[in-house]
Amino acid sequence: MNTFDMRRRSRRALVALLVGIAHAAVVLGVALRYGYEVGPSAYSVEGVLWRYGGLVALGALAAWLALELHLVVPLALVGVLAGLALHAELTPPDLVFRDVAELEPSIDEPTGFTVVENGLYLVKYLSAWYVWTAGAALAGMWEYLVRSRREWFPAPPQRWAVPSTVRTAVLIAAGAGAIHAAASLGFGFTRGINAPPLLWLWMGVGGILLLAVPAYLLVRHDLVTPMGVAVLMLVNSVYSQQYAGPGDPHALYLWAWVVFLGIALLPVRNPPPPLAVIVRRFCLR
């Protein structure tokens, strides 16, 4: 790599960082304008770094993938999610803060506990930044693999060879599964999913397989659709949990992961060899 390429990459990284900072500034600025307690004084130092740094990382990752690798899906994903949150916050019905006493006739005096109606869209977007970041990373992985393997899509400018060997497929699948499991289980834990250890183990296995299997099929057998569907289901489960009202769709997503894995694999017309055949071939290599 020559000096010019290094400088160009450095400039792109700097621009991506500035985009991430602008992304965080817009989200936090609008949230503070509407009276949400998301200022630095509302959190500890670790909380500020986690939330503010997370917003910066989310915007910077999407921008860097677009600038460096010309990947558009992660940027579009983040843009749609942020745009929906901003649109819901800035358009009617208006935000209303109510004391619990206003909603409960049996309570005569103000309680000091506030209920927010028609709002919290940006706060929810902020609180789930790590899920959106995982979704953007997985979407970028999917787009890169598809565009580097399919001739009818423009190839990324930096095209690293990704061989279709079993070992490569297993490594990429393990990485995708780990990212998905960390994001989905972390979100479920913070939302207070109450489950015994065996159920958490079941959900952990599913959290890995839900993305590992589609990623393996993409690398090893060039099956494009399953991984794309799996990434969309992750984002949709969290988005539905955040904005769809009553219910617990993300818990259902974690508990019934076998069903959702089956949905992701539905578009597969020519299934790969059975697992036993794959294991035997791997051992004979």
Rank of each mutant, 00 (worst) to 15 (best):
G112K: 13
H87Y: 10
P105H: 08
L65M: 15
L65H: 01
P105Y: 05
L81T: 07
L145P: 05
L95M: 04
R159K: 15
G59F: 01
L95I: 06
L84A: 11
P110L: 11
S127C: 06
A137C: 06
H87E: 02
R150E: 13
A161L: 14
G140Q: 00
L138A: 05
K124M: 12
V131T: 11
V166S: 11
P163D: 07
W142T: 07
F153C: 08
L58K: 02
G83V: 00
V73Y: 07
S148H: 08
R149T: 14
W129Y: 12
L145W: 05
L55I: 06
E117K: 13
L103E: 05
A137H: 01
M141Q: 07
Q158P: 00
V166P: 00
L95D: 02
A88W: 00
T111Q: 07
R150C: 10
P110Y: 08
A88R: 00
A57I: 09
P156D: 08
V78M: 01
P157F: 04
E102M: 09
P105T: 05
A85C: 05
V80A: 13
G59S: 10
H70S: 15
L95Q: 04
L75H: 06
V123H: 05
L86G: 01
E109Y: 08
F113E: 12
G79M: 02
G119N: 04
R147G: 07
E102C: 06
L71E: 09
L95F: 08
Y144H: 07
Y130L: 11
A139S: 13
R167P: 00
R98Y: 07
L126A: 15
E104N: 15
V162M: 12
A57Q: 03
T111W: 11
A57W: 05
V115A: 13
L103G: 08
G59L: 01
L120S: 14
P92H: 04
G59Q: 03
P105V: 04
R147Y: 06
L126P: 03
D108A: 13
L138F: 04
V166T: 13
Y125K: 01
E104F: 12
R98E: 12
V100T: 11
W129L: 02
S106H: 10
A76G: 15
L122T: 00
P154R: 15
D99N: 08
L122Y: 01
A155T: 12
A66G: 08
D99Y: 09
G59H: 03
A88K: 00
W160D: 11
A155S: 14
D94G: 15
D94P: 02
T165N: 04
R150S: 14
L77G: 03
W152Q: 12
V80R: 00
A76D: 03
A57F: 10
S164W: 04
G119I: 03
V162C: 07
P74Q: 09
T133M: 12
V115T: 11
F97Q: 07
W152I: 10
M141E: 04
L122P: 00
W64E: 09
R98H: 13
L120T: 12
L84R: 04
A82H: 05
W160P: 01
L138P: 02
V56F: 04
E143L: 05
V162T: 14
